[in-house]
Design a protein around this nucleic acid. Structure first.
Lengths: 224, 224
DNA sequence: TTCATGCTTCGATGGTAGCCGAAGCATTGC
DNA sequence: GCAATGCTTCGGCTACCATCGAAGCATGAA
């Protein structure tokens, strides 16, 4: 069972340390989890067998990273559930401030800016949210076409919903997933408003100066 | 840690059994997980403390359901990860089809048709439901008098409520109980729309051809 | 070659948590 | 009233698994 892998405190600490997308050596992960290298080795081989992490040999070192964004997404979901029941473990979220601000969750925008975006879209009636279900309003369609050149027919997919609420790891509130969430993130990249961090495997999303300005103009709150 | 809750095989089996959105009793979940009721009780209290499931008391039974869609979503994600590394599990299917369709619950109609009836009554504003409490609207009173010759004064009882939501055994959704539920079932029998199965001890309710038609005319959905 | 570093495997230990039998409440039915 | 059913609590037993020390492989540097 996958969940039992994540359930162990030592392994959970390791996985949390890997949540920023960077690869860490076995020793570093051991220290991160507060255990000896031989114990860490045992854990890491189990995580690898479960498909949660992938090793990369480099000289005498073995670097481990999360397998892909799906794994990160599930971990994020678990952290979200843990957070809302106050059942969380030591770490309350990413300590990296850049990661808290904006990051990739599967293929859409998460973090402070992701939550803020959905908030604004909701208050401006671009979407209507009922629990986990979100639907795009006609006002929202007009908005997307006008400002982001996104039309509804670009968003249809046989198995995936257009809009979906996704629990945010660091903010503990919902951000926007689904084909729309993915399309908007892609558009931000195309417009050179933002780009995934160059560091291999990093989930950080860096906004450019002008990108941040444009984003704030569309989705910024009253503050700032 | 939330993940460790899901990680235990017995608890994972329980949660998987709840994934269809229906509620199950503690004993049923015990059987589903292949453990004794006292062990299941321990597991369920932990799941409840972790905010993964919510109980609903009904008579001697305790029905458990997943807290909300966020929980189900995370479980889906975990199952997805498990599936791609080949750690799948199996699902269970329904049993007696006749019993699922229509049966007696105490003295009122249960099963697929019972749930359907309450659904329709709710959407047509014949009743208003708030959680477990149901109240008859004036529209509902008119409807009952016109189509089933049931008047409100037939329904008063010192200890029993007129309307009550009763969790359905097979559908795991609410059907209508209380003196109204009983009166309607009785009326169906008097009109020869339906009758309890002749088999001694059987709880199956058989609808006649015309009875099914009349019932569908009053409470049928769009389909059929 | 020889040594040092990084990681893994082996073996033994101990704490934790799942498990069940028996008894205790609560609700319903007679 | 009493019995039956459903669920919980309590106490003890057992099995599993995380943990670490020590030894075994690798790789890289001298």
């Amino acid at each position: 069972m996958i969940a039992s892998l994540v359930g162990d405190p030592a392994r959970a600490n390791m996985l949390t340390a890997l949540m920023n997308g960077r690869a860490l050596t076995a020793s570093e992960l051991a220290q991160e989890a507060g255990i000896t290298p031989q114990t860490a080795s045992s854990h890491l081989s189990k995580l690898e067998a479960g498909g949660l992490v992938e090793p990369e040999k480099q000289g005498r070192h073995r670097y481990y990273r999360l397998t892909d964004d799906d794994v990160a997404g599930v971990l994020e979901g678990l952290a979200g559930l843990a957070a809302r029941t106050g059942h969380m473990r030591v770490r309350t979220g990413p300590k990296d401030p850049a990661l808290r601000r904006a990051r990739i969750c599967y293929d859409h925008l998460a973090g402070d800016l992701g939550v803020q975006m959905l908030d604004t879209m909701r208050t401006r009636n671009l979407v209507r949210q009922k629990k986990q279900d979100i639907e795009l309003t006609t006002e929202g369609e007009r908005f997307l076409a006008k400002h982001l050149q996104i039309s509804p027919d670009m968003l249809t997919h046989p198995r995936r919903p257009v809009c979906k609420a996704c629990l945010d790891w660091s903010e503990r509130r919902h951000h926007l997933a689904g084909t729309l969430g993915a399309a908007m993130m892609q558009r931000f990249a195309e417009l050179k408003w933002a780009a995934r961090d160059a560091t291999p495997g990093s989930r950080v999303v860096n906004f450019t100066r002008t990108g941040e300005k444009q984003f704030a103009a569309l989705f910024g709150g009253e503050k700032d």
